[in-house]
Design a protein around this nucleic acid. Structure first.
Lengths: 202, 202
DNA sequence: CCCCGGGTCAGCCGATCGGTTGATGCCCGC
DNA sequence: GCGGGCATCAACCGATCGGCTGACCCGGGG
């Protein structure tokens, strides 16, 4: 039996997955977690074979960070989430996830992915794999650029962003220019829109 | 038996709900739908007592519109979704939803809400009801203001927005000013951030 | 009938933004 | 040890934005 731990911040979804996986032969749900910290603690205690991990976990550490702390050859992490933006996929894989599935996938795919993950084999949802192949060159913002973008999304002006981050206004403008280029926009409003769309901000 | 139709664009979630509701006494799932149009058609054909409706349904008509077309004294619509923004709640209730539940709710609450909905009684998730009580005065943008906001979120300048909507630049600025006031911001970037946060745009 | 909310438009102002060019310092990998 | 990516800063420019005041038209409800 493959021992599975479910991590999702929505109780209804957890219960649904629990009931769904009960019908899957060879798979046994041994525990649930509603948040990142809880997932890390429960995974350490139960030592499951596979952790089904959602990326959006409300307050506390997010699914990527939880994945980073849990993933190991003994405990595989299979991401099961709604979105398939470049940023999410690359961050999750980078954090050590053994697979990346979309909730839109058919349940049989989920079962198969869990079994594959238990053996250390990676599974990517079709849309994810397809876009990974025809990589449109991911923008990949730097940490500092994300900082600026975060302040920008609060509606701050350049002067205010500068003060908030203890740098000069000139530097803010430089970073913004590069952000525009990477995101393919030319205004702050457009940058915020893309950032929210691509889930580049927490 | 209460006959239930499940509408959600995520196959895994549908399967989960199906399995979960199978364990609820007195509740019987008679069908599934992955999109708005499909939900309307299936509801018409099966005449379920309650439709479990997600608001985010990918392409096509959204959950609110589907609710509007389905809701009746014979077919109650119970919204089951992730977000609880003012805009979503008011639009759903306005469209005739008999209840508004969050996926974060405990499964027992879901069962109870389905039974309540079947009898025409309204159920609101605790967080939803709480905020409805202490109403912080919903902004409520006009149709035209939403139009402007939509173009703004594409990163367009005032001149471009004006051309896109066949109005003068002056009018765009007037609308923008009112949008800022209603959203409690004072820059276009801030307006886009709030719009995405509050899910004011499709 | 008149008022009011929503949409439209105008002109003016100072402040801010976006683009450009150029430069310095740091740390990492080859 | 040297290039290169990253972060930092400067000065300049024209274009745009945000705030303001005032105005017109339309449609519907009191």
């Amino acid at each position: 039996m493959i021992r599975v731990l479910i991590c999702d911040d929505h109780a209804v979804v957890r219960a649904g997955l629990l009931a769904l996986l009960a019908s899957a032969p060879g798979i046994e749900v041994v525990g649930e977690a509603a948040g990142g910290e809880e997932a890390v603690a429960t995974a350490a205690k139960l030592a499951p074979d596979v952790v089904l991990m959602d990326l959006q976990l409300g307050p506390g550490i997010d699914g990527v960070e939880a994945t980073r702390r849990i993933a190991s050859p003994d405990v595989r992490v299979l991401v099961l989430t709604t979105y398939d933006t470049d940023a999410d996929v690359t961050r999750a894989i980078g954090a050590g996830a053994t697979g990346y599935l979309l909730k839109a996938e058919r349940p049989e795919e989920l079962f198969a992915a869990i079994r594959a993950a238990a053996q250390g084999r990676t599974t990517l949802s079709a849309p994810v794999a397809r876009r990974a192949a025809s990589a449109p060159a991911a923008p990949a913002l730097t940490d500092r650029e994300r900082d600026i973008l975060g302040q920008l999304a609060r509606g701050l002006g350049n002067r205010e962003i500068a003060r908030a981050l203890f740098i000069s206004e000139a530097t803010v403008k430089t970073h913004l220019g590069r952000i525009y280029t990477k995101l393919g926009v030319d205004t702050r409003a457009g940058a915020v829109a893309v950032a929210k769309e691509q889930r580049l901000l927490p």
